[in-house]
């Protein structure tokens, strides 16, 4: 770890020079989710963000870290200071924090701790013109200007190359306990106040409770179902994940074989093997209340609330309504007029 307080900008400036103002570039993290959004154009020059933890500030519940830092290194550094960020690391590969943010890969603990985008307080990135840009500020609460940091989360490196980020951290819970039960996951959610995660495979329900010892015990006392403690959550299928409004999971699960999936209850994500059919016909998942005039596709029960970040198949999402799609496209066009940032990758 670098000495506390030493913020060497030259490393970031060197990265900006490497990205430069011309020619297609492709930013590389740990390649653990490399196919998300499509493979980059082979002509693109590969660049890597700087690595290293600049400052861990437990009193501020913040960390400043270079985007190329391996997630494991970051997690360990935070643990040493009694802090944590809710991110998951696979057993295989070496994902980076910049990669996790670019893909928008939220933790299975999102139910309590929120999506990964809510961690980001400040970003420094290299824009399409090769300039180093700052967005946000290193404070936990800030409305000084537009929220560029959150817009970059999940943008697959198509708007700029993340160089450094400031993240909000949390005190590491003193107790973390996984339990498993055959109880109804939707009822379990109602019984608990702050579960960190509720996972369901159609038969069993896994629950993560975190906090002080008394806090976890108090939550367990609220459970009406029989349960057993386990060491870890179930294995998550890695093929693809489907994003649904949380209440749609129950209906969606009826089309799947039990144990062929793991659903995040209260969140709306379903993890599937790549060979599982993931768009049952006839599903109506309107994200808008009745009477909306917004777009015919949604009124027809279109499935734009469903997408996968699959390694095996393209995005399932129906097309966005035309005016909304136009704004998404303008965002890309205005931030990358030459189309040089991660060409070949697309969110749309």
């Amino acid at each position: 770890m670098k000495e506390s307080g030493s913020v060497s900008r030259s490393e970031l400036e060197l990265f900006a020079e490497e990205v430069g103002p011309e020619g297609p570039v492709c930013i590389v993290g740990g390649r653990t989710h490399w196919e998300v959004g499509g493979l980059p154009d082979p002509s693109a020059r590969e660049v890597r963000a700087p690595s290293g933890i600049v400052q861990v500030l437990p009193d501020e519940m913040m960390v400043r870290v270079r985007a190329g830092t391996p997630l494991r290194e970051l997690i360990i550094a935070l643990e040493e200071k009694g802090q944590m960020i809710p991110v998951d690391v696979d057993q295989q590969g070496s994902p980076t924090i910049g990669g996790a943010l670019s893909v928008g890969w939220s933790s299975i603990r999102r139910l309590r701790w929120g999506p990964i985008r809510d961690l980001v307080l400040e970003i420094r990135y290299v824009n399409a013109a090769g300039k180093l840009i700052k967005g946000g500020a290193p404070v936990v609460k800030n409305v000084s200007g537009f929220d560029l940091p959150k817009v970059f989360v999940g943008s697959l490196g198509t708007l700029g190359c993340l160089a450094e980020v400031v993240l909000r951290t949390q005190p590491r819970p003193r107790v973390a306990k996984w339990i498993v039960t055959e109880g109804n996951p939707f009822e379990i959610r109602k019984q608990l106040f702050r579960p960190s995660s509720i996972l369901w495979d159609g038969i069993k329900t896994w629950v993560l409770l975190e906090g002080s010892g008394r806090e976890v015990q108090a939550e367990l006392a609220c459970l009406r179902e029989h349960f057993e403690e386990v060491d870890a959550p179930p294995h998550l299928p890695k093929g693809k994940r489907v994003s649904l409004r949380p209440s749609a999971i129950k209906q969606y699960a009826t089309s799947l074989a039990p144990s062929s999936y793991v659903a995040e209850i209260g969140v709306g994500l379903v993890h599937l093997d790549s060979n599982v059919q993931s768009t049952p016909p006839g599903m109506a998942l309107s994200p808008l209340p009745p009477g909306s005039i917004v777009d015919p596709a949604l009124q027809d029960g279109g499935s734009d609330t469903m997408r996968t970040t699959s390694t095996a198949e393209p995005t399932l999402g129906a097309s966005l309504p035309t005016p909304t799609l136009a704004v998404h496209k303008r965002l890309k066009d205005f931030f990358d007029p030459m189309g040089r940032l991660n060409p070949g990758r697309s969110l749309l």
Partner: peptide, 22 residues
């Protein structure tokens, strides 16, 4: 008329909802 974000956790496209809020 635009629809930004969604009721599902990972709506398709960029997070224009985040740009709009604030």
């Amino acid at each position: 008329v635009l629809v930004l974000g969604g009721l599902d956790p990972e709506p398709v496209g960029y997070d224009l909802r985040a740009a709009f809020v604030g």
